[in-house]
Each structure stands twice: as structure tokens, then as C-alpha cells.
Design a protein around this nucleic acid. Structure first.
Length: 324
DNA sequence: AAGCTCTATGGTACAGGTGG
DNA sequence: CCACCTGTACCATAGAGCTT
């Protein structure tokens, strides 16, 4: 298993000050609805730009002078000129602007950002604790949609499969316990495998952040299972290796400017803390009561120390983060 | 580089619940 | 008892990895 999503120096330098794609960095920083996601897996690396939940472009390096601009077919159809092979010295800002304008004008895309739901708040969070972060911000986002990689399918099934199995079983039991209250056939429902945000706080704690919008009731009350699973996966991962990867990603992001270069980094990793962040929580919703019930149930099954350091926050534009 | 498959998620309709 | 609210089931869409 491996986890390190630092991109190659060559790709990173394109975005750094003086790099040929530096204009892209400025462009995203100046558009409040846009944000970066950079990463790699065992076969490729990329710099992607998201508008809420939509990946509007991915930049994939082909060689030193050429990149491939990719996205879902839907967006390629809207703005064909933007996609395909490009020279790195080409400035395709106008094409991106054109794409965004068309996305804004077509209501079919509203649900990914304009409706001010999940995509909107996820983007806000991501920017406040990322590219707009201050030197004294409580924590910084190291990675988004974080996934641990496996060298092959056998290893994945063996390591991840076992952990997933455990939580799927619990989900099934919860469903059988009270199908009306918690949902039926939850045993068939898959448990997510991407962590929304991996962050680092000033004290040196790694925060495993799961984000939910307040209207997603079942997502909220079932989140102990999801959060527990990420906690298992990341605590199983060798600590030294995780620490190295996190610091490497931090440094790379600071060099580019995706994290404030003056943010004072901790000396070492202290702890791993699971976190739930909910935006626009509706206090009339039963989600909180059910969340406590699920937590109680899982503690009965897995031991009282299960998620004993979990933290939950409300997130609003007005007050930022406050205890849930 | 594009198509295919798997999976996650938002939107929506409706059923059931609740409060006035 | 009615009007409104909430949550679930279902469906469509899109992201991501894999294959060629």
C-alpha cells in the first residue's frame, strides 16, 4: 500500500511562480467558485480544476512541452477547443472562461455549485483552508478526495476489503435493527472509499475530515461507519511513511501557493483525529439523534473506545466552524 | 485518447409523521 | 383534521479507474 500524492517537480514547476502555467494558478485564485485538486496514482499524475463538484479540466502531462486537457465528455462537447493536446506555453484562459459561462447559463449544472448545496460549501471549505489560508489558520488541507493506493488488486482486496467488510457488516446490522428508521438493505450499500479532506492542524494532528451537507440526513447519521473506516485505514498505514508523505505534500503545496507559505508547520505528527463537518445543519432534522444512536450501537459492537476522539463541527459562511 | 464499468451522489416524488 | 415538513426510494448523471 502506498500514499503520497505529491506530483513530479516538472509538473509542479509549471504552476509555481515563473512557471508557464502560473496564469492558471492566478486564474483559479481569482475565481471564488474554482479550486485545485492535484494528485497522482500508480499510472498518472494530474492538476485538476473543480467548480464545486464538477471537474471542469484535468491537466495531464504528456512530455516537457505538451499537456493533455481532459474532462467528462459533457464538458468537452460544450467547449471542444479547450480540450485535447496543448503546448504548455499556450494560454487557454479564454476557453475556460467560455466554458464556465456556458455552465452557469445551463440550469442542468446548477446542482453542482449554483444551488449552494454540497458543491458550494465543499468548495468554500476547501478554499478557506487551502489557497485562501492565512499564516495562522487552525489547519490546512493537505489532500482532497484522499485515497490510499494498492500495488495490485490482491493487496487491495486483502487490506481494504477486510476493513470494508467489517463496516458493511455493521451497516447491515443497523439496517436490520430498524429498517424504517435507518434505511433498508444497507448491507447492499457500498461504503465510500475516498476521504473528503486530509488536513494537518497547527499541533501536528492529521485530521481525517468527512464533509456532509445538512440535507443529507442518512449520510450524516451513517457517517460513524465511514469515518471509522477511514480512521482504521489511516491508522493501519505505517506512521513514519504517512508523516513523510504529509510533509512532502505540505511543502509542495506551500511552494506553489496552494497552502500559505508562511503557515508554520508542526515538527512531527502527533495524532490522527477523525472529523465530521456539516454545513447548513437543520436542527429539526433527526440526523443528530440518529448519529448518536449509531455511535452507541457501533461502540457496543466494536468497543467503547471506537471513535472516542471524533470531532463534529457546523460550518456556516457567517461563523465558520463551531461545535455541532 | 476514448469507451466501458462501477460507484457515489444529487434531485425529486411521495408517503408517512407532526404540530397547530 | 389539515397543512406543512421530513426522510426514503428511485433514477439520472458524472467521476475515476481500467482496458485497448
Amino acid at each position: 500500500m502506498y500514499y503520497n500524492r505529491t506530483i513530479s517537480k516538472g509538473l509542479a514547476s509549471l504552476l509555481e511562480t515563473g512557471g508557464e502555467l502560473r496564469w492558471l494558478f492566478d486564474f483559479v485564485k481569482n475565481h471564488k467558485e474554482l479550486d485545485f485538486l492535484i494528485g497522482k496514482n500508480n499510472s498518472k499524475e494530474w492538476v485538476s480544476i473543480y467548480r464545486g463538484l464538477t471537474r471542469i479540466i484535468s491537466v495531464l502531462p504528456i512530455n516537457k512541452t505538451t499537456v493533455f486537457i481532459d474532462a467528462d465528455g459533457k464538458y468537452k462537447n460544450i467547449s471542444p477547443n479547450l480540450y485535447g493536446q496543448k503546448r504548455v506555453n499556450e494560454n487557454f484562459q479564454n476557453d475556460i472562461e467560455n466554458l464556465i459561462t456556458q455552465i452557469e447559463q445551463n440550469s442542468q449544472f446548477d446542482r453542482y455549485y449554483k444551488n449552494k448545496k454540497e458543491g458550494y460549501f465543499q468548495n468554500e471549505l476547501s478554499k478557506i483552508y487551502g489557497i485562501y489560508g492565512k499564516p495562522d489558520t487552525d489547519f490546512v488541507i493537505i489532500d482532497k478526495e484522499a485515497v490510499i493506493g494498492y500495488s495490485n488488486q490482491a493487496e487491495k482486496v486483502n487490506l481494504l476489503g477486510n476493513i470494508q467488510q467489517k463496516y458493511k457488516q455493521l451497516q447491515k446490522e443497523i439496517s436490520l435493527l430498524n429498517p424504517e428508521r435507518y434505511g433498508k438493505d444497507l448491507g447492499k450499500k457500498a461504503i465510500g472509499n475516498e476521504l473528503d479532506f486530509l488536513a494537518l492542524d497547527k499541533e501536528g494532528n492529521i485530521l481525517l475530515i468527512e464533509y456532509k451537507h445538512g440535507t443529507n440526513t442518512s449520510g450524516i447519521y451513517l457517517s460513524p461507519l465511514q469515518i471509522g473506516m477511514y480512521y482504521d485505514i489511516f491508522t493501519y498505514f505505517p506512521k513514519k511513511e504517512l508523516e513523510l508523505a504529509v510533509f512532502e505534500m505540505l511543502e509542495q503545496k506551500q511552494k506553489i501557493g496552494l497552502i500559505n507559505p508562511n503557515w508554520s508547520k508542526p515538527n512531527c505528527i502527533k495524532d490522527i483525529i477523525p472529523v465530521l463537518i456539516i454545513s447548513e445543519f437543520n436542527y429539526k432534522s433527526s440526523a443528530k439523534t440518529k448519529f448518536d444512536e449509531i455511535l452507541q450501537f457501533t461502540r457496543k459492537q466494536l468497543g467503547s473506545s471506537f471513535l472516542n476522539n471524533v470531532q463534529a463541527f457546523n460550518f456556516t459562511m457567517k461563523n465558520g466552524l463551531s461545535k455541532w
